[in-house]
Amino acid sequence: MRSKGQIEHDETDVADPRELEFQALIDSDQRIEPRDWMPDGYRKSLIRQIAQHAHSEIVGMQPEGNWITRAPSLRRKAILMAKVQDEAGHGLYLYCAAETLGVDRSELIDLLDQGRQKYSSIFNYPTLTWADVGAIGWLVDGAAITNQIPLCRCSFGPYARAMVRVCKEESFHQRQGFESLYALSHGTTEQHAMAQDAVNRWWWPSVEMLGPPDTESTHSAQSMAWGIKRFSNDELRQRFIDMVAPQAVVLGLTPPDPELRWNEERGHYDFGKPDFEELRRVVGGDGPCNRQRAAHHLKAQEDGAWVRAAAAAYATKHPAASAAA
């Protein structure tokens, strides 16, 4: 029987003893560490995925950060600032995890700015009202957790360990988003309407952010064989719906899906078909904010270039001080 990691590999690969050892580790659910031998495809696939994940955290700071200066109470402002700061922290761990695979953070950031690496499609939607901050916490972080909890058991050690901490913080963010939306939904009529409008706009993009349907997913089969991905996009989507559908009832908000209902026989919620054409369009660069998000990130990088150059020059002049800092 062929080992599950050997799909797409020819007989020469199968004969490589290092490959056999690598696959044996994965098949016995052990972790691959940075110094272990690994196939080039595995390394490249992980760099792509971890970088895309890191970029998502960084670009994701923009839509939520958009409300920091307008948060309606000091308590909400502190929560939002801490949350956006956590996203930056996640980006940092993830870039570090990618660096263990032999790439440099600055290379990855350049690839993002050149449009050669992507970030999650969800951050190409605008945050138009305060309720969007709560909806992102509840739905977007909810979908992210659904995707990321299985990654805590990912075969690559540094990524799996980073995910443990990221998931803890994301779970906290999801509860904060839920609590913020709950306050709005149970507030005045205007606040309730603001919350419902946000859910109307964020529901489907969140359902779609779990990726294209299994029949069209390009990276899934190999990633599953390598123990990077544990569940298919459609399985994760069902988990997400099963988690948030009952939460919507508690919130007193109605998801914009007339087909959403509990199916006793399946033991799951049924739901309508997501607009995957829209997902393709947004991933392809034609979402409402793709250009704005890219321009923002690039401008921040360019504006900071002289600062990074000065830090490098200072480090050269004062190696002892820089080592101590």
Partner: peptide
């Protein structure tokens, strides 16, 4: 200072 969020020259300084 909060206005710097997502605009700082390095990720470490954003944090």
């Amino acid at each position: 200072l909060a206005q710097w969020s997502s605009w700082a020259p390095t990720l470490e300084d954003d944090i």
